[in-house]
């Protein structure tokens, strides 16, 4: 027998029996799940591009004070509703003569905050309830999931308007509203996936070894629920931004002087026949951001969909 592939004389060593020939080669590196996900993302150029776009948007919001050519709140009666590329006002000015570009840069701070914070909060709350409901099953599941169904019964916009209306305006209330609206769908996703995991043999094996429920949840259920929940949560970021803009547009969000994309759309609405393109600019910002988040989450879903 020649060749480096030959593992051992057959049956000579019982331990070598199960070791297949190919494992003797310097096999592929062990990457683990997240390693594999990253490997897939690395070659998904479209997703990487939009990830870059998101980073740009985030950076422009963070560094808005450095990047903005003007003070976003400085009004000028003389320069109201100017068109694109009007002197230094690259994107024109609004109905109070404030620089649109500066306001969009600053507005990104509010909008991104509205997109990310409620999603993170809802992921924790909804994920927790969902995992508990899915793993426990039975009556606890019924109680938790039926309560979530109450929220599901309303269209999300209507629900957001109702909650926001009763809480009143303001940034904190808007964050709370969005969190409440986003929790039920995340809870449902976590519940579905946890109840699937619950029926797997490896969970039974863990129970058979005498592990406590908490230990099984931490070591076996959570790690498997994380990726579907994460993917779903990332799709909600853009939804949350849109919802927040909608609330601001309706006057249920942040209060007027603060720059906010939704609010800008709302106040520029009246000028739509005078300067249609300028009025659309905050909308373009919303569109770009939500498309970027959606496409990245799509790529993330594909990368995480490892058959494992």
């Amino acid at each position: 027998m020649s060749g480096a592939l030959v593992e051992a004389p057959p049956a000579a060593d019982a331990r070598a029996q199960g070791v297949p020939a190919r494992e003797a080669e310097p096999a592929t590196r062990v990457r683990g799940y997240w390693g594999n996900v990253w490997q897939r993302l690395r070659y998904d150029y479209a997703t990487l591009f939009f990830l870059f776009v998101i980073l740009l948007i985030v950076a422009s919001a963070v560094f808005a004070p450095l990047l903005s050519p003007f003070d976003p709140n400085k009004a000028s009666m003389a320069h109201r509703l100017k068109p694109l590329f009007y002197h230094d006002n690259i994107l024109g000015t609004d109905e109070q003569g404030r620089d649109i570009l500066s306001r969009i840069l600053y507005g990104g701070r509010t909008s991104l905050l509205m997109g990310i914070v409620p999603v993170v909060a809802a992921t924790f709350v909804g994920g927790l309830f969902g995992v508990v409901a899915g793993y426990a099953g039975g009556r606890l599941n019924t109680i938790i999931m039926r309560s979530m169904d109450v929220f599901f019964a309303f269209p999300s916009v209507l629900l957001a308007v109702a909650i926001s209306g009763s809480l009143g305006g303001g940034m904190v209330n808007q964050l709370i509203t969005l969190t409440v609206v986003l929790t039920p769908p995340l809870c449902r996703v976590a519940e579905t996936s946890a109840s699937q995991i619950r029926s797997m043999d490896f969970v039974d094996a863990a129970r058979a070894s005498g592990a406590s429920t908490v230990s099984i949840l931490l070591h076996h259920v959570l790690v498997n629920v994380v990726s579907p929940v994460l993917v779903y949560a990332s799709t909600l970021v853009s939804a949350s931004i849109l919802l927040a803009s909608g609330l601001s547009f309706l006057g249920l969000g942040v209060s007027p002087p603060t720059p906010d994309w939704g609010l800008m759309l709302s106040t520029l609405r009246e000028a739509i026949y005078v300067r249609p393109i300028v009025c659309a600019m905050p909308g373009v910002a919303i569109l770009l951001t939500s498309i970027a988040f959606n496409l990245v989450s799509d790529g993330l879903r594909q990368a995480m969909d490892v058959k494992a």
């Binding site: 029926s199 797997m200 043999d201 490896f202 005498g210 592990a211 494992a308």
Partner: peptide
């Protein structure tokens, strides 16, 4: 258990899966 896609935790390296019960 019978060998199936569900018999081992897909997110744990196999030595962790084996070490789990002594740790418990």
């Amino acid at each position: 258990f019978q060998d199936s896609y569900s018999s081992l935790n897909p997110r744990l390296p196999i030595e962790e899966s084996i070490a789990y019960s002594p740790r418990v």
